[in-house]
């Protein structure tokens, strides 16, 4: 079985996000970018499936600017076998929307015929949580979202989902799209020899046009604002004082 793992290049989770002066979005010029953390978990899961003998090839794919090449090299250094970069934007500030991404991935699925697509449940930049679901719909495949456990047995996959009320385990028919949640695994980091090997692994470059997909945005960002600053706290001397203050504030 071949596993396809879409990975997104996003602002590094350690970076303090700054809103652009014109409110059109977040400033991404000269900012450290990394692989979306949920996608790292998806790559890790795919590699583990390969190590367990359940998958024979792991293909990483990224859709976006040319620099997403670095994100794919990271996936290759972790252990993916090859990569496909679909250039669909020139400016680092252009975010290719979930529907366009899903359509491009569908094009790749048609060509590559994977048995499983493992996506992150959402990208930490705009938290859309949509691409995996849209892809499943476009393909007419089953889907298992928010996975904290994935168990593949022949024609079916057992996916444990993290839902509000607790854990839900479903059985889906293969091929399937699974979107992964935080607790599925702890992704490995790349060793130096694997970083060196990754430089030599194949990385194909395509464009959105190769898949006949129009990436023109359909959504309009009306405004982007910083979260409200947190008001300063106060140190209290005792439990009694704390209770008094909380009562004063009407909190209890």
């Amino acid at each position: 079985m071949k596993v396809l793992v879409p990975v997104k290049r996003v602002i590094d989770y350690n970076v303090k996000v700054r809103v652009k002066a014109d409110g059109s979005g977040v400033d991404l010029a000269n900012v450290k970018m990394s692989m979306n953390p949920f996608d790292e978990i998806a790559v890790e899961e795919a590699i583990r499936l390969k190590e367990a003998g359940k998958a024979d090839e792991v293909v990483a794919v990224s859709i976006g600017v040319k620099q997403a090449q670095e994100t794919l090299r990271t996936a290759l250094a972790m252990g993916a076998d090859r990569a496909i970069l679909v250039i669909a934007a020139e400016d680092v500030h252009t975010d290719v929307e979930p529907l366009a991404v899903a359509k491009i991935i569908k094009g790749i699925v048609d060509e590559e015929q994977p048995g499983l697509v493992l996506c992150g449940k959402q990208a930490i930049d705009n938290d859309m949580n949509a691409t995996g679901q849209m892809l499943a719909a476009l393909l007419g495949w089953s889907q298992g979202t928010f996975a904290s456990e994935v168990d593949i047995e022949g024609d079916t996959a057992k996916v444990t989902r993290e839902v509000d009320g607790g854990l839900q385990t479903i059985s889906v028919k293969m091929p399937t799209v699974v979107t992964v949640d935080l607790r599925l695994n702890e992704p490995r980091y790349a060793s130096l020899p694997n970083i060196m090997k990754a430089k030599k692994k194949p990385l194909d470059e395509k464009t959105a046009a190769d898949y006949g997909v129009d990436v023109t945005p359909r959504l309009e960002v009306v405004s982007t604002v910083e979260p409200a600053a947190r008001a300063a706290g106060e140190i209290v001397g005792s439990v009694d004082e704390l209770v008094t203050k909380l009562k004063e504030a009407g909190a209890i």
């Binding site: 990394s34 670095e70 090299r73 990271t74 250094a77 980091y189 790349a190 060793s191 130096l192 970083i195 990754a198």
Partner: peptide, 10 residues
Amino acid sequence: QDIRDGVRAL
């Protein structure tokens, strides 16, 4: 950057 990221992760 790949080396930096690798060492930082470790």
